[in-house]
Nucleic acid binder design. Structure first.
Lengths: 193, 193, 193, 193
DNA sequence: GATGAATGAGACTTCATTCAT
DNA sequence: GATGAATGAAGTCTCATTCAT
């Protein structure tokens, strides 16, 4: 019950808008509320009523992914293998960012349009921080890496993958390669030592 | 003498346009030729005569930095310390990218507006490739890192630094930290081993 | 009722735009959507919403005349006097073209912006073709005149009248004179023989 | 000696400009003095010095054709076969107009940029008038056709041919067909009677 | 709530003409 | 005379947002 219950038709419109927006971002098309409205077969005003700004819509589109990632974070925190926990979590994050163009924007942005976004980003951050701190305390991570570096580094990898380009499968591969390079660098000793 | 030498007044305008553009990009303002013309106190047509597209102007603004980097590349190739050569070169590249917002765009773009840009980017690429190959052959770089990864990774670091934020000095620091993490990951053995 | 019916205010604007455009073409001023918007006291966007291109507006302005001509064509086809039918129809066409500058452009253009225009031009063409074929079969038209000549010849007469100039009344006279010369030439025997 | 003798280099430039302009009009490209200058490898100022307006250049390009036609007019006036004289002259005029896009514009225009153009147009007109008057007096032309109709009718035919379209050869054919239709209409009795 | 017409600032670009060199 | 850089008005078109229906 995060919000007032919408009337049934309003809810249907909300769903259509979000679905259309999801399609657009997946095709790499920038969100324009007019455009979204036209494609959804709705009036512009309706879209504006539901989403005051393009950012709000974008964040709404990104929310399910963020929720999934937050869920992964919670699972990772329950993992007793400290190293595997951190690496698995970061792996999920990078994979998601590479697969979903909205994440890079939302995660990298300093300001949020929706409280829910802020909440989810905080949840992700704190999971990452906790996992990193544990690893650092366990001596498997170099001490100069701090919590505030995680988000930038993940966004950096996503960006590097975008520059590198390729098919979706290539991109996932590249993302894992880059992440593993970075992890090498973060660790005090190579994992395969 | 109908060479590429500009008339004195035209050269003055060219300089003003580039200077204004440089100011704008340093302030993080997107280049718009109309806007540049107004701020430079020139007619729009004048700006268009010198720079057919915003991209051409942006690349012109970036050119001096690219030239400096290319020069560094040539120096690095003359260095007999293979590891120092590569690291020094990458360090310069990342520092420049972090200090100058135009570089990230120009280096990361798949297409160039000016032949000079293409030439410089190629020069940088080949220097990087050569340095990387030498290091790999010397056994100090993991074999899975290939030449095509250098540009994406440098852009990724620049992006990470932008997300991290901070004062210019902070940003330089962060860039070096991130680069050294990456280098750790690229190397077969830690440098301080 | 999401039909093509415009909202009342939108319809009022549509009418104003078309009226302004009609005034302009009657004064021999080329249609420019910006100009039309200014004169109609509307935003440019409004004009663009209604008419994507100057051509679409021009054709809309021409449409009523084309419809009247098409109607004449249908009447002429019902006339049992084959010669009178053809001559009356062409007379109407030439008179209209001379009185309305939009017709020459729309009729003479190889491409149409509006489907309605294409439809009307086709209707006119087929009426003309049918009337001409009947006359040729009746032996009153020289066999070398084919359907594809009608439109060019009508446009040619309109153009000749424009070159000749004069008051509107003069122009109508001239048009009839030129048409009757042409008809003399088309016929196998002079009508007054 | 219609003009002050040009310096040799100026004459060379003049020739180049006219040659380039001729090429352009033959390709159906509108004359723009900037464009002409660029293609001629000359400065805009040079073109402006020689031709104050695009019209002046266009008329200069058309001048040789007009002179040839005027010459034909003089020959026709010497022909004792009155009918052949008129038809031959008009045939030349129409053929020229169809082959050379500049003629339609220059002949159809009410105002001239160059005195030479006015002179040539007058010469053509008077030849046409004289030939027509002779034919009318000889009783072979309907009395209602007056001298002022010749230019409009020739332009009308040229325009009709343009609308009709086709290859250059087609166009010449069409022009002759249309002219012979018109001549049928102008004559009191068919020529083949 | 839903609709979509209206708005108008503002970006981009072209081009005829002038004038300093 | 020749050059071509500069000008800037004017046109085209887009789009985020508002508001009457």
């Amino acid at each position: 019950m995060t919000t007032t219950q919408l009337r049934k038709d309003a809810a249907r419109n909300w769903d259509r808008i979000v679905a259309v927006a999801r399609d657009l971002v997946d095709q790499g098309i920038a969100l324009q509320l007019n455009d979204v409205a036209r494609r959804a077969g709705l009036g512009v005003g309706t879209v504006y009523r539901h989403f005051a700004t393009p950012e709000a819509l974008l964040e709404t589109v990104a929310t399910p992914c963020l929720e999934t990632l937050a869920e992964h974070g919670r699972h990772a925190l329950a993992d007793t293998d400290i190293r595997r926990a951190l690496e698995g979590f970061l792996s999920h994050v990078v994979e998601a960012q590479v697969a979903d163009p909205t994440l890079a924007v939302v995660v990298g942005s300093a300001t949020d349009a929706l409280p829910r976004t802020t909440e989810l980003k905080r949840s992700l951050s704190s999971a990452g921080t906790e996992l990193l701190d544990r690893a650092r305390e366990a001596g498997s991570i170099r001490p100069e890496v701090v919590a505030g570096d995680l988000v930038p580094l993940m966004c950096g990898i996503a960006h590097a993958v975008n520059i590198h380009g390729g098919t979706p499968a290539d991109r996932t591969d590249t993302a894992h390669r880059y992440l593993s390079m970075l992890l090498e660098g973060l660790h005090t000793t190579p994992p395969s030592a």
